[in-house]
Every structure is written in C-alpha cells, then in structure tokens.
Design a binder for these strands. Structure first.
Length: 604
DNA sequence: AGCACGCCGACT
DNA sequence: GTCGGCGTGCTC
C-alpha cells in the first residue's frame, strides 16, 4: 500500500509467541523502532518491522511511533527475521528472546523514554571465518585474546566473545579484566539487559563477553565474533525457538561482515568438515595426545578389572586419590523381578525406572515421576526385585567390598574432598583441583557410545579428551579407560589424534546420511488431546506423500498433554525447510490453533 | 504477556 | 450442586 492520507500498512511484532501483525501507520517508517499499537482493547509496545507485503483489510491504527531511531539496527533486524524464518518460528518468539523485556514494558510511574538516536550503524566489513583448534584452553585463550586486542586497537567496531557456560565465562572474565568487557548473560535483570543494550547500541561499549543470547546485541558495527568451545552443547537452545548458536553466529558474522573465530578443544565433526572443505580457514595448534591404558572388559568378569583394582590398590598404598568416572546416576538403571520378569517402568514415559537405593526410591530419568521402592513385586507379590546394571551408587558399594578401608565419595556431595576414590558422572568441571590425584579411570566408556544421538561418538571423544587433559595436569597421574569395544574409533582418536577419529566418524556419518552429509530436523506437534489421533494421521499422511524420510512419531503425554515427535532426514536442507513450512500451513488450515508446531532444525 | 474459556477436585 | 484451579487459544 503506498503512503497517502490513509497511511501505509506496516508489520509489527510483539515479544510474544505470535507472528507478525499488520496495522495502518501514518507516521514515518522506521523499521526497528518501537511503536504503540492497540491489541485486544489494550495498548502494547511492539517493534516495527517494515512495510506489509499483503495487508488484510480492516486494519487498526498504530497509535504512535516511540523512537526517533531504530533500537534494532537494520542489519540486526534482518538477522532476527532470518532467525525466525529459518526456525519456522513466530517473529515474536525470537524477539522475546533477543531483546530485553523491559523495552516493551510501560513504566509504572514515569513516561517511557524514547530512543533519540542517532543510528550509528556503519557499513559492514568483510566476512571471514576460521576454525581454531587447540586442545589446551590456555593456548586458546592466548590466541583469542591476541585477536581481541588487535581488533580493539585496530578498528572502531565491536568485539563479541561468546562462551557456552558460566565456568568458561568466569575464566575469560578474569583474562579480559584489563579490557573491562561488558558481561552479558541470560540471568541479568531486564533493567541491566536494557542498559547493556543501549550501551552497545550507542557504541559506548565495544567489547562484550557473554553467553549465547549476547549474539543478538545491537552493535553498530561488529568486527570480531568469537565462539569459544564451539563444540559445546551449551550453544544449543532447547526452549522457545530451537536453534544452534554456533550456526547462528556464522550467519550473524556474514550479515555484519565480521571475522568469525570458531574456537575448539575438539571440533564438532561438522565444523571440522567445513574447515577441511575450505569453508573456514583452519588453524591447528600442536596436537596434545595423552597416553592412556585401555582395558578390554571382555576378558574380565565384573566392572572392576584386575588392572583397575591394581591401580586402585596402588593409589591407596601411596595415599593418593583416584577419580572414577561412570556416567550413570543412582544404584541401577533397571529393576526387574527375578521371579516373574516384571519390569518397573515409568507409567508416563514407558522407560525403565532408575533405582536410587539410598533414597529408597525409583525415579524416571525423563520426567519427574517417582515411586517409593518396595521390597515386593506388584505383579507376582514375590520378593525378588533385582537391580540390573551399575550406577555410581552401586559402584561405591562394590568398591567398599574390595577396599573396606577406603573412603569413597561422590563428586560435589559433602565430604568428596576428603575421599580417596572420587566418583563422578559427566558433570565434572574443567578447572577442578584435586590435590594428590594419581589416577583418572573411566569405568565404562561404552555408555558414551550407546547414547541415542548421532553425535554420541563425537561427544564421547570430547569428554574423554577432556578427562585425559585433566589427568596430565597431575604429573604422576595415569589415565585408564575400560571398555567392551576397544577397537572403537574414539580410542584411535585419543591415541593418534583427532584426525584419526574424524576420518572414521565421517564415514559413519556418510553411510547413515547424518550431518554434515544430510540434514536432520525434529518436528514437535502438540495437539489438543481430543484431536491427537486426527493430527497423527494427518501429519503422517503428509510426510508420506512428500516422500520424506522420517522416524516416529514418538508420543509422550505428560499430564495428559500429548506431544508427537518426528525425526526427519533429507539430503538437501531446502527440501526439509520447504516441506515443514507446507506442513505447518496445512496443519493451520486444518486444525487452526489447536495444534502447536515446533521445528528443531538442528536436533541433537 | 494478559484475558477468556473450559473441564475436574474440595466445599460455603 | 458450585467455586476455582490451571491448561490452552487468541490477539492485526
């Protein structure tokens, strides 16, 4: 609609799980500025996106234009809209996550402060991406900090340094102290987030250290974007729109014309592949291969091999300490009746309940369901429930039988710092100090390979690598791994270097058509309970007709609210995108708002 | 976000 | 019987 006495039709978005809405607007067209609009008899603050492409009739009017200049610069707005489109998410959903909530709230007493501008946005620089691969975090820090300093002193644009978690944030906060970075994380108060937003927008702060949502800050110009530990799953967002911020960072760097550094201790196979294919420059520090002892459990009985028992004996004899890694909580993952074969399962999720002996409970590992452990079988009334498999709790019990004099503790639980044997799951910090550590033992590596994600091997490699590097920090420490599959390529990687692992893993990905050779998407549908069967039939028909390769649906119904999960696979990403978009529209046409549609374009 | 509608547990 | 809990559907 052209501008005239009636004004023009414009699209706006509110920070809600809601797509764009269209209004009539007589004022100036300032995309990225806030406007006040009527919504259901109330006044709301929204973000002006731009002119509407196909305006419906009977529009309400924009009440006023709030800001003189955009609070979201044009390139950032373009990026945000792309993020929404890419994830098949409503614009408002992305907005809600990206911008401080306080920017859309009417202050209680005083009048709302408009942003006066001016808009400082500068022309983009030239995009360039590098994968920097160094096992040692100190080595990465040195390299990355040099890049940060060079960029800050060499240009006028901003530097954004992303970390995946709190621990690494603290590490880099310390290293960057003299450059006094703006620290931006999800747990800042809305007011603090707003202050930070404007400080960046006005060019007052050029260096930001933050977690993933800092990726949306409004730099007038961005020169350098660092994604430290790009392989870390902390970059994967699982609520709201589902996205991978490593991949989003690539897109942001492209739209901003920034230099991107993906920094890694053991790259995601996908990242290394892209680097090998020339999409990124590759900078590889000298590999650090840590010697280790591999124990073949097939020739042993029980979980504690002779070798491990010997080493533990030695640890005790020399008054040293051991870290025992077992990635399984509780006493046993499965409880079964030996008389009738009854299996204790979660009534909601239909998966075996885990036995927590000390608490006297059985608990589901997916949902919060729990059950008091009873000595009798509910099925046959017999008294022979048998725990199958070994968790950390049972490991402590077994250790006690071999070493009655030793103190065993669980990492993070009271008393662990005095323990001779420290038992831990994967949740072990990077920078943990364990004085006197002389053995790091992985009790059962196989659990790492059997996790259902296609990334299982990659994650196993990364975790074992991290443990190996932990062990070298203690000069006398030995690194020992027990497994039933000693020929697994993860061990080749640990012995000969990442590349040895990568070669074989890439072959597996190729054969199974997993990324980087195919694209996966997870589709999550949440129909109203009544129409569950109808929706299931409709979506399956659709997927079949489209010729999509899919698995599912997996149906879960926590508290009677059904969710359908499908895993889709295709060789071309455009095909998946298009099909999902069509399905979304078809579902909307058929069922209206009674089905919620969520697409995860990078499921793990 | 708010506001309205709708279906299952304790009560003046 | 009803009051009201939250789950969910809608907003140009």
């Amino acid at each position: 609609m052209p501008e005239g006495a009636e004004g023009r039709a414009v699209d706006v978005a509110l920070p809600l799980r809601l797509g764009r809405l269209t209004y009539r607007h007589r004022g100036a067209l300032v995309p990225g500025a806030r406007v006040v609009v009527p919504l259901k008899e109330k006044e709301k603050i929204a973000l002006l996106l731009g002119e509407a492409s196909s305006p419906p009739p009977d529009l309400k009017e924009v009440l006023s234009l709030l800001d003189k200049a955009p609070i979201v610069p044009p390139r950032l707005l373009e990026f945000l809209l792309w993020v929404a489109e890419f994830h098949l998410a409503p614009e408002g959903e992305v907005l809600k996550y990206a911008l401080p909530a306080s920017l859309f709230r009417q202050p209680k007493k005083k009048k709302l402060a408009p942003f006066e501008g001016p808009l400082l946005e500068k022309p983009p620089g030239s995009f360039e991406a590098t994968l920097f691969f160094a096992e040692d975090v100190e080595e990465r820090a040195t390299f990355l900090l040099r890049k940060v300093r060079e960029t800050l002193s060499g240009g006028e644009g901003g530097v954004l340094f992303l970390v995946p978690d709190r621990e690494l944030l603290n590490f880099y906060r310390e290293r960057l102290k003299d450059l006094s970075p703006l620290v931006y994380t999800g747990d800042l108060t809305p007011k603090k987030r707003e202050e930070a937003w404007f400080a960046v927008l006005k060019g007052e702060r050029r260096l930001v250290l933050g977690t993933r949502l800092a990726l949306f800050l409004p730099f007038p110009k961005l020169d350098l974007l660092v994604v430290e530990e790009e392989e870390h799953h902390g970059y994967k967002q699982e609520e709201g729109f589902r996205g991978h911020f490593r991949d989003l960072a690539l897109m942001r760097a492209q739209t901003e014309g920034a230099r991107l550094f993906l920094s890694s201790a053991g790259p995601a196979v996908k990242s290394f592949y892209l680097a090998k294919r020339g999409k990124y420059h590759l900078e590889r520090a000298n590999p650090k291969n840590v010697p280790f002892t591999l124990v073949d459990l097939r020739s042993q009985k029980g979980l504690l091999s002779r070798k491990l028992l010997n080493r533990l004996r030695k640890v005790l004899a020399r008054s040293k300490r051991a870290l025992l890694f077992l990635n399984r909580l509780g006493y046993a993952p499965v409880l079964m009746c030996e008389e009738c074969g009854h299996l204790w399962v979660c009534p909601r999720c239909q998966i075996p309940l885990r036995l927590l002996k000390a608490e006297g409970k059985l608990r589901c590992r997916i949902c919060p369901y729990e059950l008091k452990a009873s000595p009798l079988c509910p099925s046959c009334g017999g008294g022979a429930p048998k725990p199958l498999g070994t968790g950390t709790e049972r490991l402590a019990e077994i250790l006690k039988t071999f070493f009655p004099e030793a103190r065993a503790g669980f990492y993070g639980k009271p008393g662990w710092q005095e323990a001779d044997f420290i038992i831990t799951t994967a949740r072990i910090p990077r920078f943990v100090e364990i004085p006197g550590l002389s053995l790091v033992a992985v009790v059962l590596a196989d659990q790492l390979f059997t996790q259902s994600s296609y990334l299982a091997a990659e994650r196993a490699y990364q975790l074992l690598k991290r443990l190996s590097l932990l062990s070298v920090r203690y000069p006398e420490a030995e690194f020992l791994i027990q497994t039933y599959r000693p020929s697994h390529h993860v061990f080749k990687g640990l012995r000969w270097g990442y590349e040895a692992f990568y070669q074989e893993e890439l072959l597996f990905r190729y054969q199974q058509r997993y990324p980087p050779f195919g694209r996966l998407a997870e589709l999550i549908l949440r129909p109203a309970p009544k129409i569950l069967e109808e929706v299931e039939e409709f979506s399956e028909n659709f997927l079949k007709e489209k010729g999509l390769d899919y698995a599912g649906p997996l149906v879960e119904s926590p508290r009677g609210n059904p969710r359908l999960f499908y895993l889709l696979r295709a060789s071309r990403s455009g095909f998946l995108q298009g099909a999902l978009r069509e399905l979304k529209e078809a579902l909307l046409a058929r069922f209206g708002g009674r089905v919620r549609f969520v697409a995860d374009m990078s499921p793990e």
